[in-house]
């Protein structure tokens, strides 16, 4: 298979206006990825799917990642800069006809709150259908162009996105006779001192 640099250069030659960046994976696996321009992503996906050399006809894995805001402290100047947070969708592409892969694609949203729309790859690879629904459900990325975007695992009417790093689980505290540790902390929040205390069974 071509190297990722060659694929990137070929994509840039084909889509000169697109911004395509190589994201380096520093780990021993060294599976590097391509960060795509969301505006050109559907065309790039179609190109990768139909290209004679690559023929990436199989999208194995599609998933989301949450990258919250990060405070970066410069080592020399001690100046603090806040790196804005974003949501990311990652696709692992393989070729069943050419038997090679993976080519990893990444798409990033502008922020984590109101601009969370990304183009859907379901029209190109149907295997993204349920997986993109799952990303929408658990991370809150809205996939434009998805034929049936719905909550997959959580129930209808559920409000939040549980896989986000700042998700706060609901206070489903159950009464315990001898709360201790973190359960005691939650008990204090759940039953404030002014509220009537639950009855303690007498031995």
């Amino acid at each position: 298979m071509e190297t990722l640099e060659q694929i990137r250069d070929r994509l840039l030659a084909r889509f000169p206006a697109a911004k395509i960046e190589l994201v380096v994976n520093p780990g021993p696996a060294a599976e590097h990825s391509l960060l795509l321009d969301a505006a050109f992503a559907p065309e790039i996906a179609t190109f990768l799917h139909d290209d004679e050399v690559l023929r990436l006809d199989y999208c194995s894995n599609a998933t989301g990642i949450d990258w919250p805001e990060k405070e970066i402290i410069d080592a020399t100047t001690k100046a603090k800069t806040v790196q804005p947070g974003y949501l990311e969708a990652v696709y692992h592409l393989y070729s069943m006809s050419r038997k090679h892969g993976p080519v990893i694609l990444r798409l990033r949203t502008a922020n984590r709150s109101d601009q969370v729309t990304l183009p859907s790859f379901t029209p190109v690879w149907k295997s993204c259908d349920f997986q993109e629904c799952e990303i929408y459900d658990l991370y809150g990325i809205v996939f434009a162009g998805h034929p049936d975007l719905r909550r997959l695992l959580m129930w209808h009417g559920f409000k939040d996105h549980p896989m986000r790093r700042d998700y706060v689980a609901p206070d489903d505290y159950e009464w315990e006779p001898t709360p201790h540790g973190s359960v005691l902390d939650r008990a204090k929040v759940h039953y404030p001192a002014t509220a009537p205390q639950p009855e303690t069974p007498k031995p």
Partner: peptide, 23 residues
């Protein structure tokens, strides 16, 4: 593990079972 990511997959009895990890 060092910072990085990996996608490991194998042929499970039901199909391709993969784990995608980011450290």
């Amino acid at each position: 593990p060092k910072a990085g990511e990996a996608y490991g997959r194998l042929e499970g009895p039901k199909g391709e079972l993969g784990f995608y990890l980011i450290s």
